[in-house]
């Protein structure tokens, strides 16, 4: 470090602390607003049915070894047989999710609400930070970094002579944005823990075809190897009992 900057304590009191506090409070506010805006959807019967069906099939798959081979075969046939198995989706009946979305305005509305509740607070805070706090050297990271990080950490101040570990206020905002997730998960419960990244994922997977997951479930059901656990359980019980007797 070539030279140490002397920062005004007023910057701490009027930039660093308020910025961090506001970020936390906005996170909390966003959580509650999101909670308020979440409409209680009346789920479509067909979709609920399919979801439950998949859960049932998954349970069967997980617990397959605890039932006799015959019972497993029966259940497997019930789920996967080619004529009227529950997981079997007839060709041509698969609905196009895109078309379904357009036919159901509620779904699009919900999606938009979710996105808006994410984007609006972020743009607003960013604008607010830009307006009030642009150009401050607000903080200093306590470990050395290479020049590559300059663009990331000193966003908003164009001084090439300042040591890289000094952080501009705008970059402090970004650091808060990413680093506070852990804190939010602690104070707001786990619903919020994975909101941003998770929502991105949801957006990516949005318009996913429910029939696809049905047929995927069917495939994995078909390749499962069945091995009844009961014979082994006898051994296990014997072990346990022997232990008891020894004591």
């Amino acid at each position: 470090m070539a030279e140490d900057l002397v920062l005004d304590t007023a910057i701490r009191d009027w930039v660093l602390i308020p910025l961090s506090v506001v970020m936390v409070l906005i996170g909390v506010l966003r959580y509650f607003v999101g909670k308020l805006m979440r409409s209680s959807q009346t789920a479509d019967e067909k979709i609920v049915k399919e979801g439950q069906l998949i859960i049932r099939a998954r349970n069967l798959r997980a617990a397959a070894n605890f039932i006799p081979a015959k019972s497993f075969r029966l259940r497997k046939a019930y789920y996967t047989n080619e004529e009227n198995g529950l997981l079997h989706v007839p060709k041509g009946q698969a609905t196009n999710p895109q078309a379904q979305m357009f036919s159901d305005p509620n779904m699009a509305m919900d999606m938009m609400k979710k996105n808006l509740s994410m984007i609006i607070p972020q743009t607003l805070t960013f604008a607010w930070v830009n307006f009030f706090f642009s150009g401050f050297v607000a903080a200093k990271i306590p470990f050395p970094l290479t020049q590559r990080f300059r663009a990331m950490l000193q966003n908003g101040i164009d001084l090439s002579t300042v040591d890289v570990s000094y952080v501009s206020s705008r970059s402090w905002y970004f650091l808060n944005l990413f680093g506070l997730r852990g804190l939010f998960s602690l104070i707001l419960g786990d619903e919020n823990a994975m909101d941003d990244t998770q929502r991105m994922m949801q957006m990516g997977g949005f318009g996913m075809d429910p029939t696809k997951s049905l047929s995927a479930e069917k495939d994995s059901m078909e390749i499962i190897q069945h091995e009844w656990a009961l014979p082994k359980m006898g051994q296990r019980a014997e072990e346990v009992l022997r232990k008891f007797v020894k004591q």
Partner: peptide
Amino acid sequence: FGGLMSFVLFWTFAYDIVHIF
């Protein structure tokens, strides 16, 4: 490594408040 980001943030925050200014 999940807590590293939080650690760095709070480390920086406390360090700055106490030692930099």
